[in-house]
Structure formats: C-alpha cells, structure tokens
Design a binder for these strands. Sequence first.
RNA 1: GGCCCCAUCGUCUAGAGGCCUAGGACACCACCCUCUCAAGGUGGCGACACGGGUUCGAAUCCCGUUGGGGCUGCCA
Length: 499
Amino acid sequence: MTPPRARFAPSPTGYFHVGSARAALFNWLFVRQHGGTFILRIEDTDEARNRAEWTDGIIDALSWLGMDPDEGPYFQSAQGDAHQAAIEALWDSGALYACACTREEIDARTKERAAAGDPTPGYDGHCRDLNLPRGEGRALRFRTPDEGVVVVHDLVRGEVEFPLRALEDFICVKSDGKPLFVLANAVDDRTMAISHVIRGEDQLPTTPRQILLWDALNGAQSVTLALPAYAHLPLLVNESGKKLSKRRDPVAVEMYREQGYLPEAFRNYLALLGWSPGEEEIVPLNVLLERFRLEDVQRSPAFFDVKKLTHIDGVYIRALSIDGFVAASRPWVDPVPGEWAPGAWRDPDTGAPATPPPPWSPERFDPDVFASLAAVTQERVTVLAEVPELVDFLFLPDAPDDPDSWQKGVASDELAPTILAGALAAYESCPWDAASLHEVTLALAESLGRKLGKAQAPIRVAVMGRTRGLPLFDSLAVLGRDETRRRIAAALARLEPAA
RNA sequence: GGCCCCAUCGUCUAGAGGCCUAGGACACCACCCUCUCAAGGUGGCGACACGGGUUCGAAUCCCGUUGGGGCUGCCA
C-alpha cells in the first residue's frame, strides 16, 4: 500500500470531545502502522468564536495523547481560494444551479405534498430548471441524479448503497457565496490528497453527497483524483445508548486530564472502544500499533464506560515506578507556575468543574516526604487527583478536619479517650519506625481487649483526619514523633475541653 | 415520515459453520488476606433479541420481525 494520508478534521467547538479523540486515535494508529501521514485540519468555517483558543486546546490534547500531527494544523478558513475555484468549476460545468427558495417555502410545499399523499421530504427541485442567475441571496444546489445508487465502499461496513431518488438536490454554497461543510470538506480532502477518510458513523449519510461532489469535481476540474477510502467508526454512546452529548455527558478530554488520568491509559481505553487487541486488553502502544486493523473495527456503538477507564488507569498508575509516580503526581501536589496544572481548564459552558489545587501551600509541601510515602499512595489511587487527599495530613498544620470521620472514629467510641491517652504515652519513648509503632499499638489494643483494626481508628482520625487512608504506622513514622503526639494531644483536648 | 446503520453477559468484547454445556475484562456479590482503605487471591451471578430458512451441524450464512441508533440546517 502506498503510504496513506489520513486527516483528523475536528471543528473547534469548545473542547476536545472523547469521540473526536477516538477518531483521531484510529486515524493515527492506521497511519502510523502504514508509514503514512497524520494530518490535522481545523474545520473552522462557521461562526468560529475564540478560534485560536479552541484550536490550541485540540493541539494540546492531541499532544497529551501522544498523537502530534505530521502535517497541519491546516485551517479550512484559509482554503477560500480552493473552495472558490471549485465552486466556479462546478458552476461552469452545470453541476450546480441557483435556488431562490426560502426554508418556509420549501416546508410549505413539503406539507402540501404530504397532504396529497406524497410523504417524500426534502427539497422538491423547484428551481432546478429555472436557470436562475447566481447572486442576490441565492444558494447553489447540486443537481443530484434522479436514478441509480451511490455505493460507499466502507472499510468497516462493507458496501453501503444509497438510492439516489431519496437524495435531494442539496445546497453546497450558501447565498453569501461561502461553501457549506459538505463541499469544503470534499475540496479540502482533494487539495490535501487524502487517501483515507476515517471518521464517525454520523458522517455516513453525508458520504454519498461527497462522492457525488468528488466525481463532479473530477469532471469539472483538470485534475482527476481517486476517491478516498472511507471508514466509518461506530458511535460512542452514553448508558442509554444515545450519541454522547456535550450537554449531559462528561465528554471533555481536558476534564479527564485534569482528574489525573494518564494519557497512556486513556489512549489504551479509547482503543478498546469498537476494537479489541486480543486476549489482553491492557496493552502497550507497540502492541496496539502491531495489531490494529480497520477491518476488525466493530460496527455497533460503544458505551464510554468511565468505570472501566478508571480501572485501567489504576493499573497504569500502579505499573509506574516510584519515581515515575512521583513525577506524574507533581502537577497535583506541587504545581509549577507557568506549567500545565489542574484547574487551568474550565468547561466553556458551565464554567466548571476544575480540579482544585492541593489544600496546602507550596512552602509546606516537601517532595522528599511525599516520595517516602509514594509507594503506599500509588497503590491506593485510581486517578492522580486523588493523591492530595491521601497525603494532605503530612503538609497541613493540623490533622485535616473531616466531621464524619471524627464522629465515627472518635466521638462515638467510648474507648477513644483511653486509646488516645494510651497512645500518647506509648509513643513518647518507643522506637520511631513503622514496625515498632505497630508492635506498641498492638500491645495497647490487646490490653484493652480490642482488635488492632478497631483500636487504630481513633489514632488514625486524630493524626490523619480520616477513617480511611494510608497505612497508619508508615504514616506516623514519616510524620514524626512530636507532631504525632501533638495531634493526639489536641484530639484529647477536643474530646474533654473541661478536663 | 424518508434514507442509512446496528443487534453475544448490565457494560466493553472473543467468536469469521463443528474447538461453544459461548471465553476474557469492567461492574456487582461472597470468601481469603489484612492496622483503615486499597491492592491481590479464590469463587459466584450473568448473554448469542425473536421467528423462519440453508446445512448432517449455526452465535456464526440468508430472509423477515422486533428493538435501538444515526442522518434528514444556507452547522461542522
């Protein structure tokens, strides 16, 4: 196969949609394994607001996922000359005609037809043979053949036939002279010599029009180009089986990045939607590259399952080396000014939800202290944004205050004062390491006739603030004798303010 | 309404006529391990939408039904 040229062509509409990310990934995998070219084209011809910003977001997200384009970004808005030339050629060849109908007129006629028993919707070809001149608020329609079929040769779906009689004369140039998506898209694919169009299934119904346009362009312009190969990927849906919607579904890739999903894990999960690498599903990139086949892509829609994504992310996090984990956690525990950090991105619609910064100040954070508990932290988080709440007790001036934990672990335990007082005494002079602390605390528990599991709760809440968290004795060992005892004493005082 | 697509456990999938009393993973449940929480281990629950064909034999092929979805804009 000659090296393919495939494009990822998002429109900058606010943030990077997971469905777009999946489409980009499949394009990228396909191109990489065939030594081809991965092209980024920004389809920004509409009312592009804040264009630069959204485009930067797309580029950042692609880069985060390790899929930097080989060419581009090209901007559709910069292709005006090519679009114009195509329109002129098409007009001169007679493929287009001017239409003066308004939406209202068309709808009215459709209604009339329906009343007369003809349910055919769409444009009725009213202006088709009127030979109207161009201009004056007139859109240009494509003269669609009345008989026959257009067949789309789809790499994942096989041959899909569209009867032409059901295809109306569609508009491809707006009344202001600007091309519509269907035309701009086809023209750009021609000028960029695209060989493979890999995109979402929602684009399948528009494909016959683009094929018609492509053929017409071949006849109208001096260059004859081979039609690209098409591959329409199954849609990503929510749990009710509907196409992922920007409104009610968490679809922003930026949001997942903020929450601390690793790009490798995210990419691995994306690859699993509509495709399977085989017996193992958590596989490194080289395996993805080795095994991916467009032909093996599933045809039915796939549910974007955050639970599974999260599980996979947990596996990737645990597979990190300690150093790797410490480095990956950095933005969440010790963000560097000027560099990417959680909280930088906000949902353009809701203005939320950004991951909050760590609860401690940069001055209080100690990388070495964090590193000493990294191993036990690593196996307890599933996304990096969970790291701060596990280690915050180390960097806050006092034990974090969690009312539920206090109530459950201390206030409602009649033995809590005894345990805390016992621990305060026992910790005064015992060797300060996890094993010794374990031993000493176990002895205290047994003297009170309690299992260690139950007896450690008040100490844990007094020092670490919550009933759940890192292993207690490792944590105390790192926190230090003085601070541990100070917090236990503080908890005792809080329990018996009078005494 | 019209056109198109799709149909294996709740979810993602393996399965390309006999290897399937349908395999794995997520989720869920139970047990084990255990200083909390995780992680890990063991086991469990759980699917070929339905009806006709074709065939010695169908989850796999064909047809129909039903169900779901997409598109149907002078948006991209």
